[in-house]
């Protein structure tokens, strides 16, 4: 078992099913995502079938099942961003990277996550790429931003 998973399970009582969601959150915090191993081990710990855990975890947007990319992109889908076109931003991002929200590109460079309001409504629509905020993005700007990160990667 990966040490990150073991550490989390250690502090939660065996068989206590109510702890499922906190456990998943803590594992994701440590590992960045929920691996198959994590789901199986949590299942053993709490005596819940892995299909049920996967069902619960996919119910919530916050859980992901692939490791995050080097540049993890958070797309704000809060009200202000929505009004100013964040749906289009997300759509373009998904098309550009050939992945859906919650997934990671094959080269491991980018991953997308949808987040509710990140408290930067004045900058709407806003995305956060690996900790760097980009304000007032639109379809064209999204393409430029991705290009910039790709270039940055090449020069490293």
């Amino acid at each position: 078992m990966k040490p990150g998973i073991a550490e989390v399970l250690e502090i939660h009582e065996k068989g206590k099913r109510d702890s499922l969601i906190p456990i998943l959150q803590e594992i994701q915090e440590k590992e960045g995502y929920l691996s198959e191993e994590a789901v199986v081990e949590v299942g053993k710990h709490l005596d819940i079938p892995s299909s049920r855990i996967y069902g619960v975890a996919t119910f919530y947007n916050q859980f992901r099942f692939q490791p995050t990319g080097r540049y993890h992109i958070q797309v704000c889908r809060g009200t202000a961003c929505h009004v100013l076109g964040s749906a289009t931003v997300l759509e373009h991002l998904e098309k550009l990277l050939h992945i859906k929200a919650g997934q990671t590109t094959r080269d491991g460079l980018f991953s997308i996550e949808i987040v509710a309001c990140i408290g930067a409504c004045g900058l709407a629509p806003v995305i956060n790429v690996g900790g760097e905020f980009h304000a007032q993005v639109d379809a064209a700007r999204v393409a430029e931003i991705i290009d910039e990160y790709r270039k940055r990667e090449e020069t490293i």
């Binding site: 198959e36 789901v39 079938p49 892995s50 299909s51 049920r52 855990i53 996967y54 069902g55 996919t58 119910f59 919530y60 099942f65």
Partner: peptide, 15 residues
């Protein structure tokens, strides 16, 4: 079990 939520719900196995 049920996977996903709302209109995206399907029934499937783990992962």
């Amino acid at each position: 079990d049920y996977i996903n939520r709302g209109s995206r719900s399907v029934i499937g196995t783990a992962f």
